[in-house]
Design a protein around this nucleic acid. Structure first.
Lengths: 202, 202
DNA sequence: GTCTATAGCCAGATAGAC
DNA sequence: GTCTATCTGGCTATAGAC
């Protein structure tokens, strides 16, 4: 059995704390506006210490984005998710999960088209692996939901996939949150509804 | 009749060129990653000259965002739009217009929650006026569409409004464009469909 | 108003002691 | 690995000649 030293555990805990902070700051201000000084201050360590853990700002952000995807994957692998018999309900569940992460201020924004972050992500193994793993699992659920007649079969599966990725970061969630008029559950259910059922009357 | 001097016309043309460049760069890289040097180079003038037209980077971006909204307003005021008898079709038309602007690379991204740009926008008269004017017109169309039974009446009108604003910048448009597998019209119609009809089968 | 040149600042990254 | 102190580059903004 893999014995993990106390030192390594401490390291892991610290890195988790760092990545938490980065997630929050990425969600709040985006990659470019987030400064490494802020991250260090938020974690409560010196900036130079941060650079011992992550060799650049880009790789710091990439680690954070990879972890969100790994958590999504953990959710997808959970019993509760896989036991859901209808594929449509599985898709709703993962989308709901993503919106809850966003409401908790832990969903980093999608990187802009042209950004040093984007370039770094395309070379980041853990991130790319997580993206393709999540895409594959969701792709299966999408195709199944289409076979079951629940998701519109005329939509190419990749359109559905991209839409779900985009809705995970849907700015409408933050807009509704900032009005203060809706509680979290209401926000999630409303945005989920507009995503799956559209704005038109059914 | 208002006589406009040749000088003023030249000025206007130049400022339009500047704002075009800013729009493109804002769409491509976002406010923080865009540099004033790039804008100047893109327009083909010196950076100091830019600052004669716009006193700060924030106000430069704000002018660009205000102009997009003013163009949206011009579209809303056009005969073709207003003669459309059904409110739902008017909402579809303005959303389609926004997606075409985005495909043309001229739709600036929504500012992040916490950003110097956001602060500047909240003090920018032309921007705020345009936002509230657009919101008012769309709000009327939304309520009417709900009365006509076309837009889901259970959705608060502001949720519909925010959703339309968000879809104007929907990253799915750029994602589909970057695959190169779809022509512009197909992209617009597909994303419009997911917005109004949802992902589920009807 | 346009330019060249530069001031001033701030953020990413590093040196080097402990 | 952690810190303090510092380097370095690039960015916003301006000075000042034309």
């Amino acid at each position: 059995m893999a014995r993990v030293s106390f030192r390594q555990q401490m390291l892991q805990v610290r890195e988790d704390a760092i990545v938490d902070s980065v997630n929050r700051l990425l969600a709040e201000k985006g990659f470019e506006a987030m400064t490494v000084d802020e991250v260090a201050a938020d974690v409560g360590i010196a900036k130079a210490s941060l650079y011992k853990h992550f060799p650049s700002k880009e790789l710091l952000a990439a680690a954070a984005m990879a972890r969100v995807l790994q958590r999504a994957l953990a959710f997808i692998d959970s019993e509760a998710w896989r036991q859901q018999p209808r594929a449509l309900e599985r898709l709703r569940a993962i989308t709901r999960w993503a919106m809850q992460v966003q409401l908790a201020g832990q969903m980093p924004a999608l990187p802009a088209q042209n950004s040093t972050l984007r370039a770094a992500l395309l070379q980041h193994r853990a991130y790319l692996d997580a993206v393709s793993e999540v895409s594959e699992r969701l792709g299966e659920a999408i195709v199944q939901a289409q076979r079951e007649g629940e998701i519109e079969p005329a939509l190419p599966p990749e359109v559905v996939l991209y839409t779900l990725f985009a809705r995970a970061c849907d700015p409408v969630v933050a807009m509704l949150q900032s009005t203060g008029q809706y509680d979290d559950e209401r926000i999630v259910e409303t945005v989920l509804r507009t995503c799956f059922d559209g704005l038109r009357t059914r």
